[in-house]
Simulated scan of single mutants.
Amino acid sequence: MAVYKIVEIGDEVLREKAKPVKEITPNIIKLLDNMADTMYAANGVGLAAPQIGVSKRVIVIDVGEGLIELINPEILEAAGNVVDTEGCLSVPGMIGEVARADRLVVKGLNRQGETVTYKAKGWLARAFQHEIDHLEGIVFVDRATNLRKAE
């Protein structure tokens, strides 16, 4: 597969609302594969398609529990509130505190076009929210307090 250059803050694609995927084509499957390769190569826990310059509603996440791929993800339920430190592959060298829901129900399509639902809590819930924000044109620095250089 391929490892792509990650788009950094300042690139307009990160501020666009990503377009829904209408059909799962071989190109979408290839996109999922390449996004996972890119995320792992960058030692990230999540990646949204806009972060590699593709304005489509596709995310990949792996918080250490295995790869999750979601096409057209949406948050159905959110509960709890927790503040924790986040960083972003598109904002290298910066971290900040971000308030997020602690528990989520997220729905989307898998690579076979089947609807899948995830009940997420903790770190996985945070990763889902962070990546879905990217699909809305929101970067973590928009929500962060105490923004600073990572040590």
Rank of each mutant, 00 (worst) to 15 (best):
residue 137 G to L: 05
residue 139 V to W: 00
residue 85 T to D: 14
residue 31 L to M: 11
residue 78 A to M: 07
residue 129 Q to W: 04
residue 50 P to W: 05
residue 98 V to S: 07
residue 140 F to W: 08
residue 34 N to A: 09
residue 104 L to I: 06
residue 96 G to A: 05
residue 63 V to D: 15
residue 81 N to R: 13
residue 148 R to V: 14
residue 23 E to L: 11
residue 150 A to K: 15
residue 96 G to C: 08
residue 145 T to R: 15
residue 127 A to D: 09
residue 119 K to Y: 13
residue 60 V to D: 09
residue 65 E to V: 13
residue 116 V to N: 06
residue 141 V to A: 04
residue 66 G to Y: 15
residue 59 I to G: 01
residue 122 G to K: 06
residue 122 G to P: 11
residue 150 A to P: 05
residue 17 K to D: 12
residue 102 D to I: 00
residue 41 A to G: 09
residue 52 I to K: 00
residue 141 V to C: 01
residue 102 D to Q: 08
residue 98 V to L: 06
residue 125 A to E: 09
residue 107 K to E: 14
residue 143 R to L: 12
residue 125 A to Y: 10
residue 115 T to P: 00
residue 54 V to Y: 03
residue 83 V to H: 01
residue 50 P to D: 05
residue 68 I to T: 11
residue 143 R to I: 05
residue 113 G to H: 03
residue 26 P to V: 10
residue 71 I to V: 14
residue 112 Q to V: 01
residue 88 C to E: 04
residue 132 I to M: 02
residue 92 P to R: 07
residue 92 P to Y: 08
residue 34 N to H: 14
residue 98 V to Q: 01
residue 72 N to L: 09
residue 90 S to D: 04
residue 94 M to W: 10
residue 94 M to F: 13
residue 33 D to G: 13
residue 128 F to D: 06
residue 67 L to D: 12
residue 49 A to M: 05
residue 98 V to N: 02
residue 94 M to V: 11
residue 27 N to Y: 12
residue 105 V to A: 01
residue 61 I to N: 08
residue 95 I to P: 02
residue 95 I to S: 02
residue 104 L to Y: 05
residue 120 A to F: 08
residue 80 G to A: 07
residue 48 A to I: 10
residue 67 L to F: 14
residue 24 I to Q: 02
residue 93 G to Q: 10
residue 32 L to H: 00
residue 97 E to L: 14
residue 99 A to F: 03
residue 36 A to C: 12
residue 82 V to H: 10
residue 114 E to V: 02
residue 82 V to G: 01
residue 35 M to F: 11
residue 148 R to K: 15
residue 113 G to F: 06
residue 124 L to D: 05
residue 20 P to M: 11
residue 67 L to H: 12
residue 17 K to N: 10
residue 150 A to Q: 15
residue 18 A to N: 07
residue 150 A to C: 08
residue 42 A to T: 11
residue 16 E to R: 14
residue 116 V to Y: 06
residue 72 N to Q: 06
residue 147 L to W: 12
residue 116 V to H: 03
residue 100 R to A: 05
residue 43 N to D: 15
residue 129 Q to M: 08
residue 68 I to S: 05
residue 79 A to S: 13
residue 92 P to D: 06
residue 107 K to G: 06
residue 36 A to P: 00
residue 90 S to L: 06
residue 101 A to E: 02
residue 43 N to F: 15
residue 115 T to F: 10
